[in-house]
Design a protein around this nucleic acid. Structure first.
Lengths: 117, 117
DNA sequence: TTAATATACAACCTAATGGTTGTATATGAA
DNA sequence: TTCATATACAACCATTAGGTTGTATATTAA
């Protein structure tokens, strides 16, 4: 499976998009099923335009897509991009795990040198 | 294993902290092994104070900790918090997967109603 | 055709972010 | 003790983010 290499800018946008509770909620709702912009706007205690901006940020990060249906736009969550974010975090974990492995190796070496003086 | 419930503010801070390439690099380096504030500051093309601020943001998000050693502060990455972020993304994935499961169930029901007319 | 609805988008405001420089303080080395 | 190093932190500045209101444009319903 080929996984896209995200640029620093894209990664910035991805995590930035997730760093807002309203946007995280929109992602959850749109992963659960398609909703229109109006339905989303009606769910939050802020103006229609404010919700529109959040939707634009999420779209820019690739976390959602909009699909025209007559005069309305249906918003759909994109699980692929969530996966990309998970991969990024996995890479951090691997860095740490690699370090732990090196420490384990050092310990084994010590044991060896004790066993063969 | 008990996993801490993060507040919305904490989640905001966590993803916000990850939404900057310099900070992500600091996290990587400090997961690889302890480094001092000076060492970090020397690695980026910006002022000491700017790097200090990035370190403060990461500390506020729980992604790193500082440990005094004489006059220097050693910075250490915190894999626990990476794990918390992973859990959050997993929750998004589960929302989507739950939806897929429901769709599968619907399909099965259709098949059944075809089989028993 | 006219009215209502769904969306888009510009202009504006305030607060937060990411950077700067300058100054203060603690610790270690000579 | 004196000097150099490591860190902290305040004050400032430009840009971005998150909100607002107001206006324009499609599309559907009457």
């Amino acid at each position: 499976m080929v996984v896209y290499e995200l640029s620093d800018d894209e990664v910035d946008r991805l995590f930035r998009a997730l760093a807002d509770r309203t946007r995280r909620d929109i992602v959850r709702r749109t992963l659960l099923g398609e909703v229109t912009v109006s339905q989303l706007a009606g769910s939050y205690d802020m103006s229609f335009a404010a919700v529109q901006k959040h939707i634009a940020v999420l779209e820019g990060a690739g976390l959602i897509t909009k699909h025209p249906h007559g005069r309305e736009r249906r918003v759909r969550g994109n699980p692929e991009t969530i996966r990309l974010a998970q991969n990024l975090l996995d890479q951090f974990e691997q860095v740490w795990r690699a370090r732990m492995d090196r420490l384990d190796d050092l310990l084994s070496d010590d044991q060896l040198s004790n066993e063969t003086p």
